[in-house]
Amino acid sequence: MSSTWIVVAGDPTVGTLVETGRTIGGELVALVLGPRSTAQRVACAGVDRVVWLGEPGSAPLEAFAGAAADLVAAGRPQVVLAADRAADRVLAGAVAARTGAAALGGVRQVETVDGVVQVVRDALGGIVRERLALTGPTVLVLDGGALPDEGVPAPVEEVAVTPAGVRVVEEHPAAVGGPDLHSAHRVVAVGRGLRERGDVAIAEALAVALDGATACSRPMAEGVDFFPRDRYVGVSGQRVTPDLYLAAGISGQVQHMVGARGARIVVAINTDKDAPIFRECDYGVVGDLYEVLPALTEALGR
């Protein structure tokens, strides 16, 4: 039985990766980049052992991808799992190149059928779902899931490596955070229907009344900067699973909806009665978000 590896770049929220690795079977090894705390957290997540590349210092985690790939390749895994996050994908790609593996993104499900690992994934931005049988070593990129439950710590082996010649010389962290999008039970998302940056306050007021978080469609986070970049929902942005997803001024293109389809209830507010989002909602209001959102905030206050 060959081993399965999980590769982690800094963020230990890899509960789904651990669960998936366990269903594949064999030894489950985690390779961790980032601070010692991340390695220790992953060690308690239910893996058999952890390979940690040491404190990163001023090098970004991406600078360790090549050295990490060499270590993974030496383990000759058939399946390598990575979370669908920017730095983790860089690591996943380096591993795929080094091991000559296939690389699949958008993975939704992994199972073993008659001894062969099969994968269900979203293809072409989520318009079609394909089932694939793996034929050789493969790197799978999937949603990392939640922070895993803490159990008995597995051994952590520290391996000293030399990173590539890249250094972080300036850091400008985000000024404001806002509530976490993934743990929010209610999400108010706005799109191109919002005309000015100052008007984001209308959505924020409703989010406060709902005890939820605000989000947006991609154009609101790029180019116009109404929202920080980590707040847009969609195929290449965030995928959210709240109880309530209220989309205002969002037409409902497939690339956006793929990120919102996991919501229990979808509410659509749009001035265009033919907007595709009305075909995928539980409740629809044909109207101007500038009127409907404040009215909802008001109604919730009563």
Binding site: G100, A102, L104, Q118, V119, D122, G126, I127, V128, R129, E130, R131, L132, A133, L134, T135, G136, P137, T138, R261, V266, F278, R279, E280, C281, D282, Y283, G284, V285, V286, G287, E291, V292, A295, L296, E298, A299
Partner: peptide, 30 residues
């Protein structure tokens, strides 16, 4: 060694209620 496609389907969308709330009075709709 790329994987072999063994199945393909249009993703089943969650069954949504699709209820349109209409009316001239926005406060009542809200």
């Amino acid at each position: 060694s790329e994987p072999a496609v063994v199945g393909r389907k249009r993703p089943a969308l969650a069954q949504r209620k699709g209820r349109l709330l209409t009316g001239a009075d926005t406060a009542a709709v809200a």
